[in-house]
Amino acid sequence: METLRKVLLWASTNRWLSQRLPERRFVRRAVRKFMPGETLEDALGEAARLREEGVPTLVTTLGENVETAEETRESVAEYVRAMDLADEMGLDLEVSIKPTHLGLDQDPQLAVENVGELAARAEGRGTLWIDMEGSFYTEATLSLYRAVRRGHVNVGLCIQSYLRRTADDLESLMEFGPRIRLVKGAYAEPAEIAFPDKRDVDESYLALARRLIDHLGNGGDGFLGLGTHDPAMIGPLSADAGAAGLDGSRFEIEMLYGIGRREQRRLVGNGTPLRVLISYGGAWFPWYMRRLAERPANVWFVARSMFR
């Protein structure tokens, strides 16, 4: 499984594959398991359906490392459109952005301005989430979060338990009463930067989550979103959050569209706060490879799709 994971992560960075494989019908058919379509309307249509099941949502536009300042403005406009349409439809929907989609490669100050504009637009609409990308961007993304957070309480940050530095990073953010989405991490990283052993990644995840649960349970400001499909994380950490008196205003499970539907229904039935992340856009291939790498067993779904 580890070899397969490495192959999938390599594929996520291969330009030739990203140009050729999306043309294959079986690949496009298989990716529908994880995203409803390439347009915002596709994503919001599924958000409306999930609302009927009592599930709020989160959307993100796929695409990283845009090349011009003009493209970053197009990204801002797309997210504003998402928020406005969600309001018109009466959806409980939040937005998650990638820093390199909004100018981090061009100019950190441009990214601050773009993300700050979106955070202002998101006031009263929930959290504006800043995703964490590969480790090359970790320090710059933390700086971006701190700069925007000083003016906007409603901005949140994704952190990755597989990075060795994350425990220290979290401590440095506690002064903000941070809104945190905790994930394990899905980029190819060297062993000196990220834990190579799944057991260590899991232990880090549990420790980081419990640090935040203790903080919130003792009256600290902030929010914890557990980005995971792993029952070994969901069960004990949900119990810890309940014991700490955390409700949906301070804690939730965040799962990906199309993964763990049975578990999602179980959580809703148990009254556990849940939000589902819906991704959309044409630049889906790198993201799709990383989703497969997170759970290589999903490759068998793709294999079956080839022969339908």
Results as ranks from 00 to 15, higher is better:
residue 267 L to W: 02
residue 3 T to Y: 12
residue 1 M to W: 11
residue 91 L to G: 02
residue 176 F to G: 03
residue 229 H to A: 03
residue 261 R to W: 15
residue 154 N to V: 00
residue 13 T to K: 14
residue 161 S to P: 05
residue 90 G to T: 01
residue 54 G to E: 04
residue 55 V to Y: 07
residue 66 V to K: 11
residue 51 R to A: 15
residue 224 L to Q: 05
residue 59 V to I: 11
residue 188 A to Y: 11
residue 266 R to P: 05
residue 7 V to D: 12
residue 144 L to E: 06
residue 173 L to G: 01
residue 139 E to R: 13
residue 137 Y to Q: 13
residue 240 D to T: 07
residue 293 A to M: 07
residue 140 A to S: 14
residue 23 E to L: 12
residue 277 L to F: 08
residue 232 A to P: 07
residue 64 E to C: 07
residue 277 L to P: 06
residue 35 M to T: 09
residue 278 I to R: 10
residue 29 R to Q: 15
residue 252 E to I: 00
residue 275 R to I: 00
residue 153 V to W: 10
residue 112 V to T: 09
residue 274 L to Q: 04
residue 124 G to L: 00
residue 73 R to D: 10
residue 164 R to G: 03
residue 115 V to K: 01
residue 133 E to N: 03
residue 229 H to Y: 04
residue 265 R to I: 04
residue 40 L to Y: 09
residue 229 H to V: 02
residue 74 E to C: 09
residue 296 P to N: 04
residue 212 L to S: 12
residue 276 V to N: 05
residue 49 R to W: 11
residue 216 L to K: 08
residue 248 G to A: 09
residue 116 G to Q: 03
residue 292 L to A: 08
residue 158 C to V: 15
residue 90 G to F: 01
residue 137 Y to A: 09
residue 212 L to P: 10
residue 204 S to P: 06
residue 76 V to Y: 00
residue 132 M to V: 02
residue 178 P to N: 06
residue 134 G to A: 14
residue 145 Y to A: 01
residue 183 V to C: 13
residue 141 T to N: 08
residue 185 G to V: 02
residue 168 D to G: 14
residue 304 R to Y: 12
residue 168 D to H: 14
residue 90 G to P: 02
residue 252 E to Y: 01
residue 108 P to V: 00
residue 12 S to F: 04
residue 186 A to H: 08
residue 225 G to A: 15
residue 292 L to Q: 09
residue 20 R to I: 11
residue 211 R to E: 15
residue 169 D to Y: 10
residue 165 R to T: 13
residue 223 F to I: 06
residue 106 Q to K: 09
residue 294 E to Q: 14
residue 162 Y to A: 04
residue 95 V to I: 14
residue 212 L to Y: 11
residue 286 P to K: 05
residue 231 P to L: 12
residue 197 D to S: 10
residue 101 H to M: 12
residue 149 R to L: 01
residue 182 L to K: 07
residue 212 L to H: 10
residue 160 Q to F: 04
residue 73 R to Y: 12
residue 64 E to K: 11
residue 138 T to E: 12
residue 205 Y to C: 06
residue 30 A to N: 06
residue 298 N to A: 14
residue 247 D to A: 07
residue 43 A to S: 05
residue 146 R to A: 09
residue 140 A to E: 14
residue 10 W to I: 10
residue 286 P to D: 04
residue 19 Q to M: 13
residue 248 G to V: 01
residue 198 K to M: 11
residue 282 G to R: 13
residue 44 L to K: 10
residue 33 K to R: 15
residue 205 Y to H: 09
residue 69 A to H: 09
residue 124 G to Q: 01
residue 306 M to F: 15
residue 226 L to K: 07
residue 251 F to H: 08
residue 175 E to G: 15
residue 36 P to M: 02
residue 135 S to N: 10
residue 155 V to R: 00
residue 275 R to L: 00
residue 195 F to V: 04
residue 69 A to Y: 08
residue 71 E to V: 08
residue 23 E to R: 15
residue 247 D to V: 00
residue 86 A to H: 08
residue 76 V to D: 05
residue 164 R to P: 02
residue 283 A to D: 14
residue 183 V to S: 10
residue 294 E to G: 03
residue 236 P to I: 01
residue 285 F to D: 02
residue 91 L to T: 04
residue 147 A to T: 01
residue 244 A to W: 00
residue 201 V to G: 05
residue 100 T to S: 13
